[in-house]
Design a protein around this nucleic acid. Sequence first.
DNA 1: GTAATTGCAAAAATTTTGCCTCATA
DNA 2: TATGAGGCAAAATTTTTGCAATTAC
Lengths: 130, 130
Amino acid sequence: MTRITKQRQVVLEVLSTFDSHPTADMVYDKVREKLPRISLGTVYRNLEVLAEEGLIRKLSVGNDRKRFDHDLTDHDHIRCIVCHRIDDVDFSLSTSSENLIEKEGYKILGHTMVFWGKCPDCLKLEQKIK
Amino acid sequence: MTRITKQRQVVLEVLSTFDSHPTADMVYDKVREKLPRISLGTVYRNLEVLAEEGLIRKLSVGNDRKRFDHDLTDHDHIRCIVCHRIDDVDFSLSTSSENLIEKEGYKILGHTMVFWGKCPDCLKLEQKIK
DNA sequence: GTAATTGCAAAAATTTTGCCTCATA
DNA sequence: TATGAGGCAAAATTTTTGCAATTAC
C-alpha cells in the first residue's frame, strides 16, 4: 500500500502551485524550499507514483523532458516554439471523435494533443525586432 | 549549405524502410548494415538535420525517446500502452479546428495528436490470458 | 580550397536504481 | 514491527559536443 509521507504531500502540494507545467527538477527546486534534505530521486519517484495513482498527469509535450500537471480536467496543451512555455487549451477532442478510429482495431483509451505555435509574448517581441 | 553525404543518404533511405517509427539507435543499427563505420553521433546529427530540412518528422509520442517518421503526409499516431508500438492514424484535425483556439493569442502553426490505447495484438493476447 | 561533415570519445543531461536507514501504518 | 519510502550516490540511458581528419562542392 502506498503511504502518505511528508515528501509525497509536499511534492503534490508544490506541483499545484505551478500554473506552468514543470519538469521534475523544477518541482525539486521548489520542494527543497520546504524540505531542504529531499533528494531528486525521491521527487522523481513521487511524481511517478502520483501519476500512477491518477493524482497528477505526466505530459509529453514536444521532444524535451517530462513534465507534470496537477490539473486533471479534460484539456490539451499548446507549446511556444520560441520560449517553450506550455499553456493549457480548453479545446478538447470529443470522445466521439476517438470512436472514429475504432476501425484500426485499437481499443482507444484516450489521447494527447499538443498544439504548437508562437505565444503572445513571443509574437509581440517579434514585432518589436522587425 | 547542407551537403549530400553518403551517411545522410543512407540514414534517410533506411528510415523510409521502416513502417514503424524508430528511435535513433534503431536507425543506427540498420544503417550500420550498410555503413559499418558510421557513428551514433552522426545518425543523431543527420536525423536532426533531415528533420530541420523537413525531409522527415521528429515525433514525441509518449514519455519515452525521440522517434522519427519518414511519412510527411498529414496524419497522427496511436501508441499501444502495452507493447509501445506506434501506428499511423489517418484521422487528422482539420485546420479549421486549429482556428478554434486563436483566441488564446497564440499563432498556431500545427499540432501533434497521439491517441493511446491497446493495439489489436495486445488485445488478442489479453483475451487468451483471461 | 574551404567549409560542412564525420568518427571517436568524452561529456552532458536526464532518469533510474541499489542499499541501507528511517518512519508510516 | 513489518514494509513502504527516503537519502545518497552510483549507474544507466539518451543525446550532445569538441576536435582533428576527411570529403563534398
